[in-house]
Amino acid sequence: MNYWKSSALCVSIALAMSACGNKQSDSQLTASGLNPDDFVTDVNGKTTGLYTLTNDNGMEVCVTNFGGRLVSIMVPDRDGKFHDVVLGFDSIADYLPQNNASDFGAAIGRYANRINQGRIVLDGDTVQLPRNNFGHCLHGGPTGWQYQVYDVTSVNDSSIVLTMHSPDGDNNFPGNVEATVTYTLTADNAIDIDYKATTDKKTVINMTNHSYFNLNGDPDSSIVDNILYVCADTFTPVDRTYMTTGEIVPVEGTPMDFTTPKAVGQDIANTDYDQIKFGNGYDHNWVLNTAGDDSQVAAKLVAPTTGITLEVLTDEPGIQVYSGNFLDGKVTGKKGKVYKQRSGICLETQHYPDSPNKAEWPSVVLEPGQTYSSHCVFKFGVEN
């Protein structure tokens, strides 16, 4: 066996041990109560597993390479008690699309959010993408990256690097794309997410994380009492099919105004306002004032019951706030909890929906020789 094959084999063995080492007995369960054995299967010839990141504060983050998903996030409340603050499932079987077609915790690609009628035009050529949501292409199509297995190329106690080879024509997107998602659990209780991608043909890229957060630590407790701040004076309104109209309008004087922190549920039932009626709640992109400065807080969520806080920092121009409008009690998640409407809230850093068809908005086009880069931080803390 030559050196390169031997090295690759050693890396593969090390990664397999990291994914599966803590799964021999109940005493080996994760802090969130997950059994790594339940995350090992074969999907399209690739092996899935569960990977655990920890820090010295006792925080734990569990990741599966199926869809690059955050499965559990254990953080302390104001009294030091730990809670799992993200929705998900107890086993890989429940994540498979034939059982639950969901985006829980996923690293979304190639294109997060919606593309109008699934059509893009590149260099005068029209590309027809799948139409899997109200006539539009949503989250990369019906077999987007959330339903594919990422390769684990590096993993240690605090960080994991996931890679995706997306072939030319994947859900009809052009170009062979090589993408990476790096999750790092920091010493100050933050999940740092770094996205990178390259292509050999002109294409579009827009990646995000689709975690449903519940800072109450209990999906039975709705997120409507959580206090939300969004650093955005404007947002991009949508029509009845959740497609952006092309406008950018002020939030002032509307239910979309979170420049002063308020409860998520304060205006969520105001169906006299078309955007709430169209979205069945919040399912909109806010245009961030942070102008790509990921040292500024783009959004902040606080749970009064636990004191747990979540700050979102990003270099992206927008953030999609989705208030769990379509959770309907038909899905049972971790520990047998039923996920009802508003059991979780998503804070998805991104370029604006349908940017490929709106030339005046920040571009999502990736050319050969360029590197797509996106950065997001989910920083947890507590308030008394």
Rank of each mutant, 00 (worst) to 15 (best):
D188K: 04
Q98M: 04
G324L: 09
F104M: 06
K379L: 12
S159E: 15
N2P: 15
R131S: 00
R119P: 01
Y242V: 04
Y352C: 02
N132K: 12
D233Q: 11
A8Q: 01
L96D: 05
E311V: 05
S211T: 14
I115N: 00
S158V: 10
F278W: 14
D225S: 11
Y3M: 07
T241C: 13
N116G: 08
Q146W: 07
N65E: 05
G45W: 12
D354E: 08
W286A: 12
M243D: 05
A14R: 12
N156F: 06
L87G: 02
G21N: 13
I191R: 14
S6M: 03
L96Q: 11
S159H: 06
S221V: 08
P356R: 00
K277H: 10
N384Y: 00
S323R: 11
Y111H: 13
T349G: 06
T64A: 01
A31L: 13
I108A: 01
I115Y: 01
I73S: 09
Y183G: 02
N289T: 12
T184S: 04
D315T: 03
K277F: 02
K46E: 02
A291F: 14
V204K: 01
T371Y: 03
G33Q: 04
S158N: 10
M74K: 11
D125M: 05
N99D: 12
H165D: 11
D125H: 11
M243T: 08
G217D: 15
T236A: 11
V152E: 05
V251C: 09
H375C: 05
A19L: 03
V155N: 09
P317Y: 02
G336V: 03
K196A: 15
N226T: 10
F173S: 00
L327I: 03
A299S: 15
N22T: 13
D37S: 04
T259H: 14
Y352H: 03
D37K: 06
S222E: 01
A190F: 10
K358C: 06
M59C: 14
I193F: 01
A101Q: 04
V161F: 09
G318H: 07
F378M: 10
A107E: 06
T332L: 12
S323D: 13
V86S: 10
N156H: 10
Y3I: 04
N206K: 03
A303M: 10
D293R: 09
S91N: 13
L53Y: 08
S12D: 12
V331G: 01
Y212D: 12
G21F: 15
G329T: 07
R114M: 01
Q296N: 09
R110I: 03
P250M: 14
W145P: 01
C10T: 07
R342T: 00
G324N: 09
L301D: 12
C137I: 03
V287G: 04
A187W: 00
D274N: 05
V181W: 14
I319F: 10
K334A: 02
S7M: 12
P317M: 06
G329V: 01
